[in-house]
Design a protein around this nucleic acid. Structure first.
Lengths: 265, 265
DNA sequence: ATGTCTTTGTGAACGCGTGCACAAAGATGG
DNA sequence: CCATCTTTGTGCACGCGTTCACAAAGACAT
């Protein structure tokens, strides 16, 4: 059993760099907005600024897809929308199951960005019998006993895990065994999956911690700017004793390793 | 006004690479779990596998923080927990405001990973008057008119945006003007912020699209594996005509550019 | 048809991140 | 006190991603 690789080891998929793939949805969003405003063509400069990237980067990204632009004019919006959609596989229907219908799972079930991109919520699954049959976002929750049946019958290849971390690996294993080959994981755990299965991780806590790091750095480098910038309350230079901090931390509320990505209230 | 940079342009913060900073929370989580099991020391190999990374990478990461290990033994768990916490700025209290209390905002408000890492939800803010005063996850929602007052009085420097995309930029501007210098954005938009303000973006739709890309690639490269792997329904090789697809797409449901990160039911 | 002007597409250089492989350091046992 | 063994810390090389800068390509006006 391979250790969970969240990042693929630089396996260029048919020559398209991973970094480029990650930006295609950004371009697609910007292009869709232009399409709605009936803008016929767009230059790399305009589109790049709309997508929040460098224009050279954008041109290089598009060059991996082919030569879809016209020199002196720019890119045809409609055509590019189609090309990127096709490249991303959005011209087909992707049934998705969401496992773990807590606060977050419920929010995901109602997410508008799913349907508008070819993703269809095929089923909501939860282990709590009290939830079974209850409609969430218009879809009745099914019990996790039926997970395998649901996945195989609907031909689901993408699974979303929004369970507590403690059961995420088990759920993952069952999904994979049933035929799921792509997983979006919201539980704060490292998932182990066999080769050929893709895992992407979304972790709120990590994002906030990264922000905190930079925030601390900003506050530390600009002395005196704390009041103006609204620095944190106890921003004194004093260090907390290691022992005091760590014991307090463990006894605080719970492992967090066993907490759901978002607590079910 | 600078165009929104989500990524900082390789500005190493005091010699600590950005990629390393992004992994520190992972290590911290694994170490916390070990700490709860009262494991005194851990080798780079063990910790790396728990965090899902390479051991060489882990050692190099730690080397940026200093020499906290003991050769022949490994790392002291408690000490390392403290050092990483301090480096990330988690030894201080970070008040956070969440703007936009829809499905997602409410889920975030109840997120357990906040409190356990030194993040404190200082306030929930929503523009809907009907929400004002209503308690969500035990915290009463306040009206967005008071945004500036809340931010400045509580010394909030981190803001979470969970509003519809259409108003995200306005909310962002107000937060920044009020003193917020770090923003976690869940709205599917590119935010423009002045220099000195950090923005991190979490976008469900993008993650799913990246998965779909690899999924499509897998299905295309292994012909005949579709049935076994549970391939998508209409996985025929036929391409959809550009015009048909694009018009259908725009008329489908709505901009999505104006949709919230997670629809408020 | 020709020249000018705009914008793409890309060759090349550079920098960051990753992984290997090993020397240095310290623990441990005799 | 010495030998051995484990594990860290890091020098080095390699590959990916980003950016610059420019030649090629086409639109457009005359």
């Amino acid at each position: 059993m391979a250790t969970g690789r969240t990042h693929r080891p630089a396996t260029r998929s048919r020559g398209i760099p991973e970094a480029t793939v990650a930006r295609l949805p950004l371009y697609l969003r910007a292009l869709t907005a232009l399409s709605e405003r009936s803008v016929p063509t767009v230059s790399s400069e305009e589109l790049a600024s709309a997508a929040g990237v460098n224009s050279a980067k954008l041109r290089k990204d598009f060059s991996y897809l082919g030569s879809y632009g016209t020199r002196g004019v720019g890119y045809d919006v409609e055509y590019l929308v189609y090309q990127i959609s096709r490249e991303l596989g959005l011209t087909q229907d992707w049934p998705v199951v969401i496992v773990g219908i807590g606060n977050l799972g419920a929010a995901l079930a109602g997410y508008g960005g799913f349907a508008s991109r070819g993703f269809r919520v095929a089923a909501l699954i939860d282990a709590d019998p009290a939830m079974t049959g209850k409609p969430v976002a218009g879809i009745p929750v099914q019990h996790s006993d039926d997970l395998e049946k649901i996945v195989s019958e609907d031909g689901v290849s993408i699974g979303v895990i929004a369970t507590p971390a403690g059961v995420a690996q088990q759920v993952c294993d069952r999904l994979v065994a049933a035929g799921v080959t792509s997983i979006l994981n919201f539980a704060p755990t490292v998932l182990s999956v066999p080769d050929g299965v893709d895992v992407r991780k979304v972790d709120l806590s990590i994002e906030l911690q990264i922000l905190a790091f930079h925030e601390q750095r900003k506050a530390g480098e600009e002395p005196g700017a704390e009041a103006a910038a609204g620095g944190p309350a106890g921003a004194s230079g004093a260090a907390v004793p290691p022992a005091a901090r760590s014991t307090e931390d463990t006894s605080r509320k719970g492992p967090d390793g066993d907490m759901p990505a978002v607590m079910p209230a």
